[in-house]
Design a protein around this nucleic acid. Structure first.
Length: 222
DNA sequence: CCTTGATCATCC
DNA sequence: GGATGATCAAGG
């Protein structure tokens, strides 16, 4: 069944805490959602399941999941030691019309102002339905983290502005990286060429590196 | 073993 | 095509 949208952060966190220790199969049953055998063709399944259980407003908007609460929801797959198994997607990267765009105007900045992290067991040896939800974390970047994010974002955006988007690899950036984010490598979108004209490139997205999200989990759990 | 580049489903 | 939700899997 579809959950109502939580009225405040306390209600949201109460729901999130109530999922801790629960198997995905049980949450799926509660929401009348079928459990896939694996995530190969259902890569966003866990995230959508948790959204449903928490009452996030569905839809494809470049905004926070709980905009009325100023909270972005992210599920994060972890191993048995609590370490993230994957980088975390943040948002698509703007590749044109970025003149004058500042860090504090960016979607990355706004989405990462406040994030509700929901760890979920993600090892492939565990059947999807048997994977359990962990303890949720409501996070806001500390001064150092905010600085690292801003530095990386500004460096990457500078390269994009100089028409070097196709030369940027995932190795740029300490905590934030730019990687392909598209249906496939043939997808194209407008970007800035080195001579300042418009060219076509594979769409990119901003991702948080594993060490950064691991630090967030460690700071919360010690 | 881990990371980077590639890819999947769905909605509009 | 571009946004949402991400994980897959080849190669270093």
């Amino acid at each position: 069944m579809a959950k109502s949208s939580p009225k405040d952060i306390n209600e949201l966190m109460l729901r999130a805490h109530n999922m801790a220790g629960i198997r995905l199969a049980d949450i799926a049953m509660d929401n009348q959602i079928a459990v896939p055998a694996n995530l190969r063709r259902d890569k966003g399944w866990v995230g959508q399941l948790i959204e449903s259980e928490l009452g996030a407003l569905a839809g494809s908007k470049p905004q926070q999941d709980f905009i009325h609460l100023g909270v972005e929801l992210k599920t994060i797959p972890i191993d048995s030691k609590g370490k993230p198994l994957e980088t975390t997607y943040v948002t698509v990267a703007p590749l044109v019309n970025i003149r004058g765009l500042t860090w504090q105007d960016s979607v990355v900045y706004h989405k990462l102002q406040q994030v509700l992290w929901v760890p979920v067991e993600g090892e492939r040896s565990i059947p999807v339905g048997e994977r359990r939800v962990g303890t949720p974390i409501l996070w806001q970047p500390n001064v150092q983290q905010a600085h690292q994010l801003q530095q990386d974002w500004e460096e990457i955006m500078e390269l994009i502005a100089l028409g070097k988007v196709d030369k940027i690899t995932a190795r740029h950036g300490e905590v934030l990286q730019l990687r392909p984010k598209a249906a496939n490598s043939q997808a194209l979108t407008e970007s800035i060429a080195e001579d300042g004209s418009i060219q076509l490139s594979n769409p990119r997205g901003f991702y948080l590196k594993i060490d950064f999200t691991q630090q967030i989990l460690n700071n919360a759990f010690g």
